[in-house]
Computed example of a mutant assay.
Amino acid sequence: MTRAKKSPAKKKGSTSRSTARASARSSGRFPRFLKALLFSSLASFGAASYVLNPQWRIPAPVQEALTRLGWPQHWAPHREPQRAQPREQAAPAAVTAAPTGAPAQTMFPECRQFFPHSRPPEVPGSQKLREVCFSAFAILHNGQTKTPVFVAERLNRQMLTQAQGQRRTDKFYAEARLPRAERAELDDYRGSGFSRGHMAPAADMSTAEGMAQSFSLANMVPQDQTHNGGAWSSIEQDTRKYVMRAAGDVYVFTGPVYSDKPKTIGSGVAVPSYIYKVVYDATSGRSWVHWQANAASTKVGPPISYEEFVRRTGLKLLPAGG
């Protein structure tokens, strides 16, 4: 008779140690799982936040988290690149004159009220022209010169009467709607010796919002201080006096004109050789242009014709026949 072999009995101590090790591995995996889940959730929340707010900078930990989760390195299409060196050490890019390319028709779909017959101007083209609407004026901005091509206003007696009650704010600011590489900054004017010359004057603004927005640096050019406070100030005042006498709306376009290789201040903000102001009375059909050298010695003189202005600049700011 064959006896059945007995299975060796497991040692009680060995079983306990194995169970303990398995329990330890399991308990170790659970905190790691929670950490991974928390890490993934925070990263996803950060990603969503920066998608909805592309103007924010992405902190390095968040970018690293996104990379681990499989997001592409440059996933935010509007994210501004960080500067490789401090701003004051960056060499300014070469600046060319105002637009000189093939004619381009501007659109301004959100603020056509600033243009006669709601027809925006035709201008020489450029790759860095941007249309920016404000509550009281519209700007065609040139990212090469970091200044306007023109600033358009629609004025009348009622608006200027309301403007007389507005308090001047003098709170200048960089225009955040423009790419950083194409806009002027406050530091560009600091110590330059030039005024931040308004194109749409603060004194034209009939609302508190318009007054505040008129101090955007997108509405400025580097202007000789004596000219800004002297001859040019007289032209602005004379324009308002005319508007107060006019029967209806008066459209005003103001902007700079540059030499082929203009002087710059700061990080490449171009200094204009001339500043113009086109005045068009929509009721009478009359138009004229103030053409002023951006210099301390400039005096108030007779205006030039609109046709001569177009010949000098290529800017067709008024409708045909204006």
Rank of each mutant, 00 (worst) to 15 (best):
M1C: 08
M1V: 12
T2N: 13
A4Q: 14
K5H: 14
K5V: 03
K6M: 01
K10T: 14
K11W: 05
S16M: 03
A20W: 10
S27D: 13
K35Q: 14
K35S: 12
A36E: 10
S41W: 04
A43V: 15
A43R: 00
G46H: 00
S49P: 00
V51G: 01
R57D: 10
I58E: 12
P59G: 10
P61K: 04
T67L: 12
G70Y: 08
G70A: 08
Q73V: 05
H74K: 01
R79A: 15
Q82L: 15
Q85F: 00
A93V: 11
T96W: 05
P99F: 07
P103E: 11
V123Y: 00
V123L: 03
S126G: 13
K128T: 15
V132D: 13
A138S: 15
T145H: 09
T145P: 05
P148S: 06
R157S: 13
Q158K: 07
A174S: 15
A176C: 00
L178W: 11
R183L: 02
D188M: 09
Y189F: 13
F194V: 01
A200R: 02
P201H: 07
A202V: 06
G210H: 14
A212H: 14
A212V: 07
S216Q: 10
L217N: 06
A218Q: 02
V221Q: 02
V221I: 14
T226L: 09
N228A: 14
N228V: 05
G230W: 06
A231G: 11
S234F: 00
E236M: 11
E236H: 09
M244I: 09
R245K: 15
Y251E: 01
P262S: 01
V271K: 02
S284R: 11
W288M: 04
V289P: 04
H290M: 07
A293P: 05
A295N: 06
A296E: 11
T298K: 13
S305L: 07
F309R: 03
G314T: 08
L318E: 01
P319D: 01
P319K: 03
